[in-house]
Amino acid sequence: MWLGLDSVPAPRHGRGMPHDHSDHDHPHALLPSDPALRVKALETILTQKGLIDPAALDEIIETYETKIGPRNGAEVVARAWTDPAFREALLEDATKVVSELGFYGRQGEHMVAVENTKDVHNMVVCTLCSCYPWPLLGIPPGWYKSDAYRARAVREPRKVLAEFGVTLPEDTSIRVWDSTAEVRYLVVPMRPTNTEDLTQSELVELISRDSMIGTGLAGQP
């Protein structure tokens, strides 16, 4: 298993565990101050030591730039809108359902789908870091990782939604999901009215990334 939570060996040298440094003696302070040069320096050192294959880095970047993104999640939502048995199975065990569609993987090992209704609007945040369902939505946008969103989404979700141009009816309650563990949440937005005649692929076009985080609503045709 890779990058997950399997037991890892005790390190060969050093303390092995993160610990507190002052801001002067932290190892990062040894690197160039310009962040682009800092990344370059780390890549160079690790490549020289035979620990990194730069072509593998290119492959990772290509994957998240072109192959894994919010379109995956939109396909899941569109199918949930059009196929009642699929919707029921998704709400029951999302991990199983999205795995069968090939959307399993890193940062999507334990999926839960939460459905918006007239009564409840769901919204997702990670106040402690930036947890996000990568296989379904890709790499999170900058605002999702920002201090402002992390700090405010749990305390004042309605003001946050207003900044995204979203106003909910007064009698709709909000459920904010703070992703504090390895469970990742996918919001199933409400299907817009007057979309009965649309095909599944036409519906996919209405399903934005933000609507699956809960900071947006599905678009109108």
């Binding site: 298993m1 890779w2 990058l3 997950g4 939570l5 399997d6 060969r12 690197l31 160039p32 320096a41 160079t44 050192i45 690790l46 490549t47 020289q48 030591k49 035979g50 620990l51 990194i52 294959d53 072509a55 593998a56 290119d58 492959e59 990772i60 994957t63 894994i68 399993y104 993987g105 890193r106 940062q107 999507g108 090992e109 334990h110 296989p135 563990a181 390895e182």
Partner: peptide
């Protein structure tokens, strides 16, 4: 800014051809 000598961990280096499989296999908790 210079790596001094080959690491003992080079056999664990991620190869480009394994990236897709590794990302798809994840690491359940």
């Amino acid at each position: 800014g210079i790596g001094q000598g080959e690491s003992v961990l080079t056999d664990k280096r991620l190869k480009a051809e394994n990236v897709a499989g590794v990302l798809a296999s994840g690491g359940p908790a």
